[in-house]
């Protein structure tokens, strides 16, 4: 039984089913992550966002457990993606002289490995930016605002979320097909949900670099002026004045 299950999970359909499940769980994480991040815009001072992050950190070992779980999902998804991609390339040693697509092959579907790797690089940068860096004395919100006020930061974050959006535009539908949920009564509502998720997550995460860089939020400008370890000067309004 166990031998059969493990060998079946490493079959072509088994691998894709595992990729689908891990991918869908990661999408679930992204929804929660976006919802939490949006607290950054719920007040002008970033207090809500800081309170949210402090609360998360207070879970201690539970948080670590969740992070390990996420890392496992990510690694399994990535490893299977690489394996499937290389197996697929190897299945046709001699290519056609002319190649014509006429199915639903798209930019997104043919670049899943590339967008997936871009997301990986982005996640590493993102973790180094905010997870594995000492918390600044003026809070996480201020760190986020400072990072996303730099041109380099904005560029990295926009490329990251764009790659994610493109990846998701093929991913969700593909996962449904792999799990056999297409062509069932769940088909239409799930396809709609997929579109909402891909666009919602892509645009949702893109809001942060776009809004913070454009300086549309008040606390943006204030925090952007303050270098990381130094206390925010008491005369923040004066700084704002000076900027105008």
């Amino acid at each position: 039984m166990t031998r059969r299950l493990s060998s079946s999970l490493s079959s072509s359909i088994g691998k894709k089913a595992l990729m689908s499940v891990t991918g869908l769980l990661l999408i679930g994480f992204l929804v929660v992550h976006l919802a939490g991040n949006l607290t950054l815009f719920s007040d002008d001072t970033g207090e809500h966002f800081d309170a949210y992050s402090t609360k998360l950190m207070s879970f201690g070992p539970l948080l670590t457990l969740a992070e390990i779980g996420l890392a496992v999902l990510f690694v399994v998804h990535l490893a299977l993606g690489l394996r499937v991609t290389f197996e697929n390339r190897a299945a046709r040693a001699q290519r056609y002289a002319l190649e014509r697509d006429r199915g639903s092959r798209s930019f997104a579907s043919s670049t899943m490995l590339v967008t997936g790797c871009l997301v990986l690089v982005f996640v590493v940068v993102h973790l180094l930016d905010f997870r594995f860096r000492e918390r600044a004395s003026d809070g996480l919100a201020a760190m986020v605002v400072r990072r996303l006020s730099e041109p380099a930061g904005v560029l990295i974050y926009l490329v990251g979320v764009t790659a994610l959006g493109i990846h998701l535009s093929h991913a969700f539908r593909s996962a449904l097909q792999t799990l056999g949920l297409n062509d069932t009564r769940f088909d239409r509502p799930l396809v709609r949900l997929g579109r909402v998720l891909a666009i919602g997550l892509g645009v949702g995460f893109a809001l942060f670099p776009l809004i913070l860089f454009s300086g549309a939020r008040k606390h943006t400008q204030a925090a952007a002026q303050a270098p990381a370890p130094v206390e925010v000067p008491a005369d923040v309004p004066a700084v704002e004045e000076a900027q105008r």
């Binding site: 072509s12 691998k15 894709k16 499937v84 197996e87 697929n88 190897a90 299945a91 046709r92 697509d101 006429r102 199915g103 639903s104 092959r105 798209s106 579907s109 043919s110 899943m112 093929h170 539908r173 593909s174 097909q177 792999t178």
Partner: peptide, 10 residues
């Protein structure tokens, strides 16, 4: 030795 499906409907 066939490849894996990537749901592109070709």
């Amino acid at each position: 030795g066939f490849g894996n499906c990537t749901n592109e409907s070709e």
